[in-house]
Design a protein around this nucleic acid. Structure first.
Length: 476
RNA sequence: CGGGGCGUAGCGCAGCUUGGUAGCGCACUUGCUUUGGGAGCAAGGGGUCGCAGGUUCGAAUCCUGUCGCCCCGACCA
């Protein structure tokens, strides 16, 4: 009866297979000829464009501008900041031949751009009057990962990386925090994904950062996904790249820098947080098609009904993204399943009975029975329902986050729950404990949530005195 | 890098044990009938069986080598 189940493996049976089925069947991606690379197909790319548009507006509103820095970075530049090199060099791809000749210096395909941006900033900044520098770029980076998964971890991925320089430490820290807040806003208001804001432990910090702020979201299988990060880099990079300015007091000082990024991994989060056994469920604000109208009719009346559907679409344009599925070669039942798999938030069915009654039948992708909308109410009703779906998806995700969050005093309690979820516990602050935990359970410290103090129940690993409240989880 | 799985039509697979001129389902094309939860009938098109050697009268099938991909771990956005 439910033939969607024929094509998509149920989440409960095999979450990983479910994810692969959904990304393939909903035409979100395809595997590229080179291992670890994927093609982002139009439907998924459109979602990415909505994410870009929203983030870009937030960045602009806080004074940032877009620019573009080169793909290739000379080895000598990449290796200038010690921790940074150590962190990234294992996964860098190198260009060694150009124009048929072996290059005198290897060129790295950027794994991230702090180094080349830093080198350029050093040339552009002389005075405190040149600060702050607030630049973002939309690009792709390459990290040669051992194991890849569509959207979640691919060798090349699309993202934005912001790079800023500030006159004071305080201003740079505030910048890093402000950008984290921009990401949180995107996730909550647009992607309908709740997340835990926090800072990374020293062991989990970005290579070369003083502080890494993170947003950790809980996926449907109880694993954590780092959705976006924002780094306060202190003066590590300004010292490595000589980003100095003459301050008002006549002293030559190093700038304080930040960097922050969010990637197409957010698409993976979107799929895993909202999807169900029938496929995708897209929040209206990022749905390429928000409303699909399916005409139902046979023989001579069909043409008339299709025309009627197009008239309805016209009424809803341009405030809503509407599609009339007037394909002749598929039955209504096929179309219902097809659009459900693709996550379209709202479906309107129009048959002869509806035309006669002056109404349409509506079906929400976020659950519930079909209901009728009186034709004269259409514009208002669609707008209200889309808004409700946006909020209900967030509410469902928030409920899942809460249901998957546990307070523990010993990490064994997490094992009892099969390590599924966010486990809030105390930590002594020793990396040895974090390492031991990872060894034993493959769980890591996802973050030290902002605003939480230790419960003073002792480290959940070694039971020595508590220093921090942390979230333990298995991560993607 | 360890473990597992798989390479045969666009996709999913069978055929391989026991060698004999390549098959099924879906998809695709055309026509007719259909359309309120994945339509039916009919007629079609499409494959150097991952690659390279070898054995043999003859290899998708047996042997050797090789390449690639997927999944699960460890490392990482």
């Amino acid at each position: 009866m439910d033939k969607a189940l024929k094509e998509i493996t149920p989440k409960s049976e095999d979450f990983s297979q479910w994810y692969t089925d959904v990304v393939k069947k909903a035409d979100l991606m395809d595997y590229a000829p080179v291992k670890g690379f994927i093609v982002i197909r139009p439907y998924a790319y459109r979602i990415w464009e909505f994410i870009q548009a929203d983030l870009d507006a937030r960045f602009r509103a806080t004074g940032h501008e877009n620019a573009y820095f080169p793909l290739l970075i000379p080895e000598s530049l990449l290796t200038r900041e010690a921790e940074h090199v150590e962190g990234f060099s294992p996964e860098v791809a190198w260009v060694t031949i150009g124009g048929g000749e072996v290059l005198s210096e290897r060129l790295a395909v950027r794994p991230t751009s702090e180094t080349i941006v830093g080198a350029m900033y050093a040339r552009w900044i002389q005075s405190y009057r040149d600060l702050p520098v607030l630049i973002n770029q939309w690009n792709s980076v390459v990290r040669w990962e051992k194991s890849t998964r569509p959207f979640l971890r691919t060798t090349e991925f699309l993202w934005q990386e912001g790079h800023t320089v500030h006159r004071t430490e305080d201003e740079a820290v505030r910048e890093a925090e402000q950008q984290l807040e921009a990401y949180r806003g995107l996730m909550q208001e647009v992607l309908a994904i709740p997340a835990v804001s926090g800072v990374k432990s020293a062991g989990e910090r970005f290579a070369g950062a003083v502080e890494t702020y993170t947003l950790e979201a809980l996926m449907g299988d109880g694993r954590a996904l780092q959705a976006a990060t924002s780094h306060f880099l202190g003066q590590n990079f300004s010292k490595a790249f000589d980003i100095q300015f003459l301050d008002e007091d006549g002293a030559l000082k190093y700038g304080w820098t930040t960097s922050w990024g969010a990637s197409t991994r957010l698409l993976g989060a979107l799929i895993m947080v909202h999807g169900d056994d029938r496929g995708l469920r897209l929040p209206p604000r990022v749905a390429p098609i928000q409303v699909v109208i399916v005409p139902i009719g046979k023989g001579g009346e069909r043409a008339q009904i299709v025309e009627y559907c197009h008239a309805l679409k016209k009424r809803l344009d341009p405030s809503t993204r509407v599609m009339v599925d007037d394909r002749d070669e598929f039955t209504p039942g096929y179309k219902f399943n097809d659009w459900e798999m693709r996550g379209v938030p709202l479906r309107l069915e129009v048959g002869p009975r509806d035309v006669a009654a002056g109404q349409v039948m509506a079906s929400r992708r976020d659950g519930g029975a079909k209901f009728a909308i009186v034709s004269s109410e259409l514009e208002r009703a669609v707008s209200v329902v889309l808004d409700e779906i946006q909020h209900s998806l967030y509410a469902q995700a928030l409920a899942n986050l809460k249901a998957g969050s546990w307070e523990i005093t010993d990490y064994q309690e997490a094992l009892a729950r099969d390590r599924r979820g966010f486990f809030y516990g105390d930590w002594c602050g020793e990396e040895a404990c974090a390492a031991h935990l990872q060894e034993e359970t493959s769980m890591t410290i996802r973050c030290l949530p902002l605003g939480l103090s230790p419960a003073l129940t002792g480290c959940a690993v070694c039971h020595q005195p508590s220093r921090h409240r942390v979230v333990f989880a298995r991560a993607y």
